[in-house]
């Protein structure tokens, strides 16, 4: 069977039997999505690559503890998310971070501009990239996380519901509201 066509569940089973190629297929399948998600979380695409690499290694090391009743994608994103959050906590302790408060009173970290590390640095339209970044930052923490999981992590609504342990209907409704805000903020580009 071609690994590229195999489901995540099948690949996990092969990987549990020691097949490194099966796990490498999972790495290939999720690398860009996990990096995109983490780069928005930590504000640095290079760091996001390192974190996603670490997430894959941890997933491989703990594969025997993976509960097959959950999806591999949500498990992997949870590992990556925890690594990202840990990194942000450490960074807050180490450096004097710049913060501002968003509309709902949640603290938002302002990342110093560096185009080589910019998660949207590959955008040709820099004005659009800047507006998208600004629009996402303007979202409440909860909406922002859902948007990142959906459009940067490319997770399905069902996967997000599992990741957030939230009813599917709530995910649908919250993403609809988040999109309403995004459509308004990006009206000039739509």
């Amino acid at each position: 069977m071609s690994f590229e066509k195999a489901s995540d569940e099948q690949l996990v089973r092969f990987a549990l039997d020691g097949d490194e190629d099966a796990f490498t297929t999972l790495v290939r399948r999720y690398q860009r999505r996990l990096t995109a998600f983490l780069s928005q979380l930590v504000g640095d695409v290079e760091l996001a690559r390192e974190l996603s690499q670490e997430a894959f290694i941890r997933a491989w090391s703990a594969l025997e503890r993976f509960d097959p009743k959950y999806r591999f994608s949500t498990w992997l994103f949870r590992i990556g998310h925890n690594l990202g959050i840990d990194h942000l906590r450490r960074r807050r302790l180490k450096t004097v971070a710049l913060h501002r408060t968003d509309r709902e009173g949640d603290e938002v970290e302002l990342v110093v501009e560096d185009t080589t590390k910019d998660p949207l640095g590959h955008f040709e339209n820099t004005e659009l990239a800047g507006s998208l970044k600004g629009a996402i930052e303007e979202l409440t923490a909860e909406y922002r996380e859902l948007v990142l999981l959906r459009h940067f992590g490319c997770l399905s609504y069902q996967e997000i519901a599992e990741f957030k342990q939230m009813p599917l209907g709530t995910v649908k409704n919250k993403l609809f509201r988040a999109h309403t805000v995004l459509r308004k903020a990006l009206a000039a580009f739509l």
Binding site: T24, Q31, R32, R33, F56, W60, L120, C154, L182
Partner: peptide, 23 residues
């Protein structure tokens, strides 16, 4: 909005796969 989001994935980094494999 979908067209914008279709462009947000960064390019793949081919070195990640090799590094994960050796780890």
């Amino acid at each position: 909005l979908g067209l914008i989001f279709a462009r947000v994935l960064p390019p793949a980094d081919p070195t990640v796969e090799g590094r994960v494999r050796s780890a």
